[in-house]
Structures are given as structure tokens and as C-alpha cells.
């Protein structure tokens, strides 16, 4: 059936770098078909002209780091028929979730000349911790291809084809040589969700875990292998504490090396 009408799209920003919403502008040849199929009603990164809500589809970038944002996301949810979170910040708290492991009060005192001006929460949290989310799109940044798939799936009223499998399968489909097995390079590919197209291994680098944990990650088995390949405990802790540090499986992985007693 041909589609009816032209649904309204809104793009929202919370604590984030804007890279994920820029992916929409980066759609190049696909941007005009997107604009033809969906009315870009509220996208401040692209235009100051804002059409009032409610909206059929909201793309939400960023994490919740202030009380004001915790209130604002409920407003966004209230005026969105479908709400999709985009990127590591929105789906896992982002790099700024490193604060979750530290004392934010101390940061405030040390970093800012007038700490009393800073109103912030002790944690950076994912959008789903605050409001119901219809779909989460992973990545730091998200993949343009997956974003288009999410929009197309929304238009066709179906579930997006976004796999939760490991980076390894993408790497192998691409014909890459495994950097872990053939070069001895520590790599998070086996525990990380696919979607990036295995970019880093294609350039002889280990995976950094930008897309967060795959569906059944076994970090407990991978960590001793990373250590065998020369990563010390601090290195393992750091590699799991990047853009998806607060994703539960990665958090458990970094906590597990932290808690281990140091060998004599």
C-alpha cells in the first residue's frame, strides 16, 4: 500500500556532542527522500523554523545529567507518538557517565571557579531510565545506514532490522583478518554490538566498543584473553569505560577487574 500523509519528525538534544543528530544531515543523497517522506518539523541543528508538536517520531540524542533535563524528557515523551533514542549517550549515558564512577561534588569543587553555578545530577543516565523508549539505536556515533533503516521502518510501521549480533560477524562478512587472532591486538569486537561495519579492525585497530554490549556478551571469558595479549588490569578497566561505560554489561566488566586483588 502506498503510504498516507507525511508524519512529523522532531529531533531533541540532551547531554551530547551533536554528532548523532548530525548523522541525519549527513544522509547526503538520502536527505531529500527523507524530507519528502517525513516533515522535519523540529530540528534546531538544521533550522530555526520550528513547527509546534505533537510529533509522530522523536529522535532523542544525549543523556540525562541535570534535573531540568529529567523534567524536559518527560515533556518530549508526552508530545511524541514514537520515541527513538539515538547514540551511546541516549542509550547508555555516554562518555559523561564516567562521572557515575566518581564523586561529582569533588569535580564541581576542583574544576569550577564558582561551583554554586553548576546544577548537575550525580549521574549521567540513559533516556530509558526516565521515560519509556520505543527503540534504541546504538553507536558513537550512530550509523547513517541504521538511522535510515529506523526512519524507513517507522514509515512502514514495522520493527527496524537492526542486529544485536557481535562486531565479529560484520568483520568476517567484510573479509577482514581478525586483529586479535592474527596480530595479537586486544579487541572488544566479540562482546560489542555490530552496526559500525567493523571500521576499526578494518584499519588494524581493536574494537573500542562504541556500539555497546552485544546481546549475550561474555566479557568474563574475553578479559583473561585481553590480559594474555598484554593489557594490564587498568587497561582492561579503561577499555570498558568509554562511550558505553554505564551500559550494564560493560560496567560489570570494568568493575570485575577493579575488584580483583592485585597479585603479589
Amino acid at each position: 500500500m502506498p503510504r498516507k500523509g507525511r508524519p512529523r519528525l522532531a529531533v531533541w538534544k540532551f547531554a551530547s556532542c551533536d554528532g548523532c543528530q548530525l548523522t541525519l544531515l549527513d544522509c547526503e543523497d538520502d536527505l531529500l527522500p527523507v524530507a519528502a517522506a517525513i516533515e522535519i518539523a523540529n530540528f534546531r541543528e538544521a533550522s530555526r523554523a520550528v513547527v509546534e508538536g505533537p510529533y509522530d517520531l522523536s529522535l532523542v540524542e544525549g543523556s540525562i545529567t541535570t534535573a531540568e533535563d529529567a523534567r524536559r524528557i518527560r515533556e518530549v515523551r508526552a508530545q511524541s507518538r514514537t520515541l527513538v533514542t539515538i547514540g551511546a549517550c541516549a542509550t547508555a549515558g555516554g562518555i559523561q557517565a564516567l562521572r557515575n564512577f566518581q564523586d561529582v561534588e569533588e569535580f564541581r569543587r576542583v574544576v569550577y571557579a564558582r561551583p554554586e553555578y553548576i546544577a548537575t545530577l550525580a549521574t549521567s543516565t540513559a533516556i530509558r531510565d526516565h521515560v519509556p523508549v520505543d527503540f534504541e539505536l546504538r553507536g558513537c556515533p550512530i550509523s547513517k545506514h541504521q538511522l535510515l533503516e529506523v526512519i524507513t521502518a517507522f514509515l512502514d510501521e514495522r520493527v527496524p532490522e537492526v542486529s544485536t549480533e557481535s562486531v565479529c560477524i560484520e568483520c568476517k562478512r567484510r573479509g577482514n583478518v581478525c586483529v586479535l587472532v592474527a596480530h595479537g591486538t586486544p579487541c572488544l569486537g566479540p562482546v560489542t554490538q555490530a552496526g559500525c561495519g567493523a571500521i576499526c579492525p578494518a584499519f588494524h585497530r581493536g574494537c573500542y566498543g562504541c556500539f555497546g554490549p552485544m546481546d549475550t556478551p561474555n566479557a568474563t571469558s574475553l578479559i583473561p584473553r585481553l590480559e594474555e595479549l598484554g593489557m594490564d588490569r587498568g587497561g582492561v578497566e579503561r577499555v570498558f569505560r568509554t562511550f558505553n561505560a554505564a551500559a550494564p554489561a560493560f560496567r560489570a566488566a570494568s568493575d570485575s577487574v577493579k575488584e580483583k586483588p592485585v597479585a603479589p
Binding site: 502506498p2 503510504r3 538520502d30 527522500p33 527523507v34 519528502a36 517522506a37 535510515l148 526512519i151 524507513t152 514509515l155 512502514d156 532490522e161 549480533e165 557481535s166 565479529c168 560477524i169 568476517k172 562478512r173 581478525c178 569486537g189 566479540p190 562482546v191 552485544m214 549475550t216 561474555n218 568474563t220 571469558s221 574475553l222
Partner: peptide, 30 residues
């Protein structure tokens, strides 16, 4: 199973593993 990563590498490199999936890739226009 405690060691297995479910990462699929064994099946990807296996010359006889044949499992596949199919996916419809629609254009935005429909």
C-alpha cells in the same frame, strides 16, 4: 559455554557453515 563468546567467528571461518538470513531493504519512498 563459560568460555564461548557467541561471537560467531567459528561459523564465519568454517567452509561448510551455511546459515544465512534474508532481509528486505526498502527504499524510503516505499
Amino acid at each position: 559455554a563459560r568460555r564461548c563468546l557467541s561471537c560467531t567467528n567459528c561459523t564465519m571461518v568454517c567452509p561448510t557453515c551455511f546459515c544465512h538470513t534474508t532481509e528486505e531493504v526498502p527504499e524510503l519512498s516505499g
